[in-house]
Design a protein around this nucleic acid. Structure first.
Lengths: 143, 143
DNA sequence: CTGATCGTAACAGTTACTGTTACTTCCAGA
DNA sequence: TCTGGAAGTAACAGTAACTGTTACGATCAG
């Protein structure tokens, strides 16, 4: 069980809501989603609350409460999800400032930063290619 | 200070050894490297020990001990480093197995896995493009 | 032999995430 | 107006990973 399951769980939850709504239901409760994800409802509420701030989903309170998507599955990409719950940055710099007196120590951070930026771009490009509609299609196509 | 500084520190250490050797020195000690990185020598030894197992560098013990590269800077890519000290995987699956009775629960992992595999490939391609020779050049070109 | 350095184990401190409990707030519908 | 079901949220424990540090044994050129 690696640390970063947030992307996976967020994609799972949103896809679940999308499919549930296609079955004609208006809203999905965190408890229902948590059952499918196999976790605690609070974990789902915490994640969806973040995604809600980003405008991907929406909650309704009171009686008949629950979650619904703010946009169609086809218009939400994994990049949208990544920007909310993804790890940032992918690669970190030194915990302590390297020796500025040393040629390597003083030049390494700008050098690595520009390399890491290129990698982040590549990752973001890949993520942008995948919509939750694609994810749902793949999910339904699974054996 | 993000968690994953290992890639950065490994690249820093190897580049430092490479430059030091170009100055005519045979070996670099973990203490010298630690000073440039601004950390404890043991941290450097731990990292280099892993890189040594992968054949990227080599240690010499006893008097006149220290570290040297096993290959030229130009023949070591960041992908080589990543394979040793990089985070794997970049994105993790659910901590607990999702509900197999649920369509989404049963199909989500294969779907996400294939997406994540594509992203890993993209990252690896980017990393493979960059050699430590390139890193050193960028370091020396820094303002 | 000796001193310098690696190799490695052990431990504390930090951070981040997950899981859980518990409580408040909200609101459609009876 | 009441009520029940669900979101919102704070608080806390447990786990895991990484960093930093100390300590000590192993190694070997000179």
């Amino acid at each position: 069980m690696s640390a970063n399951s947030r992307m996976t769980i967020a994609a799972h939850a949103l896809t679940w809501i999308g499919l549930y709504q296609r079955y004609g239901n208006e809203v999905a409760t965190s408890e229902q989603i948590a059952k499918s994800v196999n976790t605690n409802p609070v974990v789902i509420r915490r994640l969806l609350a973040q995604l809600q701030k980003a405008g991907l989903c929406q909650s309704r309170r009171g009686a008949g409460a629950g979650w619904m998507l703010s946009r169609d599955l086809a218009s939400i990409t994994l990049l949208d999800v990544y920007d909310v719950v993804g790890p940032s940055p992918l690669f970190g710099m030194h915990p302590a400032t390297p020796d500025p007196q040393c040629v390597v120590g003083s030049g390494i951070q700008p050098a690595m930063r520009s390399i890491y930026d290129g990698i982040e771009d590549a990752v973001r490009n890949e993520l942008a290619k995948v919509t939750l509609e694609t994810v749902l299609r793949d999910v339904l196509a699974a054996p």
